[in-house]
């Protein structure tokens, strides 16, 4: 057995605790700031322990919003974020399942061409083709709409590859058995393939939900209508307030609310999350 010295054991825990503190500290400060009245954050040093305005601040944010964003209630923004995140997640999973199914279980002309077309999307992140994509969405009349927020982001090479990889591990005997029982391709997909893919879908769901929720540039570009702001993008209006100073206690409250849903998803479904993360990167 490898030696076990108490010193190195202590060092191990020290490293881990330092890491946790480093990762947690910014969130701690944000959380603390969001429970103070605005005046408490006017001069340095700012408080390191909770104030008594937490309930009032969060109530104000959720019902009236921050004056910096023209008073859009954060509950509206959270709802928009949720709709966008779920739309992207379901959209990606649905169209990727279908295309992976077609590519693995059928032989048809141009199959490989389709495969490569999907592959290419990996190399074209939104950030590098901002303007032309914006033009396309504008000419389709999809600016300021949920479909504009969701549809352009639902193509997914990663999800397609993941499902393709998984379908390839499913034994051929299942298809043969299904065919003997006279099940057609749609029946096979619905009754056999889909139930078998449940765990993979769930794992991918977590990763894609986080991806969708955290979108920033895209909603920023195509929504000018305040009622369609998502929370991750909306916070930017509270930080960049031109000449004035940000209203810090409200801005930090918004940051906390914006990160809460995806963080909770990760913590609640840790095992699935790790599985999804490791597999979608293969």
């Amino acid at each position: 057995m490898v030696e076990n010295r108490p010193i190195s054991q202590i060092l191990t825990h020290v490293v881990l605790i330092l890491g946790i503190v480093f990762l947690g500290f910014p969130v701690w400060m944000a959380l603390v700031a969001s429970t103070h009245p605005g005046e408490a954050l006017a001069q340095s040093p700012i408080p390191m322990w909770f104030g008594d305005q937490g309930v009032a601040n969060y109530t104000q944010l959720l019902t009236e919003g921050s004056p910096a964003v023209g008073g859009v209630a954060l509950s509206t923004m959270l709802m928009n974020s949720l709709l966008m995140a779920l739309g992207i997640t379901f959209g990606k999973i649905a169209i990727s399942l279908l295309s992976a199914y077609a590519i693995v279980y059928f032989r048809f002309p141009f199959r490989m061409l389709f495969f490569w077309l999907i592959f290419i999307t990996l190399m074209l992140p939104v950030e590098v083709r901002i303007l032309p994509t914006y033009d396309v969405v504008a000419s389709l009349g999809m600016l300021n709409s949920y479909s504009g927020l969701i549809i352009p982001l639902i193509a997914s090479a990663t999800a397609t590859f993941l499902f393709r990889q998984f379908f390839l591990t499913i034994p051929d005997e299942l298809v043969e058995a299904a065919r003997i029982d006279r099940a057609g391709p749609i029946r096979f997909f619905w009754d056999i393939l889909l139930p078998l893919s449940k765990t993979n879908i769930a794992a991918l769901f977590i990763i894609l939900f986080i991806y969708g929720w955290n979108q920033y540039l895209w909603p920023f570009l195509i929504t000018t209508d305040q009622d369609l702001y998502t929370i991750v993008m909306g916070i930017q209006r509270m930080v960049n307030v031109g000449e004035g100073l940000p209203i810090w206690h409200l801005t930090m409250g918004t940051a906390i609310l914006a990160m809460l849903p995806p963080v909770l998803v990760v913590l609640a479904m840790q095992r699935l999350f790790v599985k999804g993360l490791v597999e979608s990167e293969k």
């Binding site: 590519i103 048809f108 077309l117 999907i118």
Partner: peptide
């Protein structure tokens, strides 16, 4: 025709929002 129908959504989105802008 079924395989084409199945890949159609993914391919349409890819062509319209990825390949064409690129």
């Amino acid at each position: 025709w079924l395989p084409y129908l199945l890949v159609a959504p993914q391919i349409v989105v890819t062509l319209v929002f990825f390949i064409w802008p690129a």
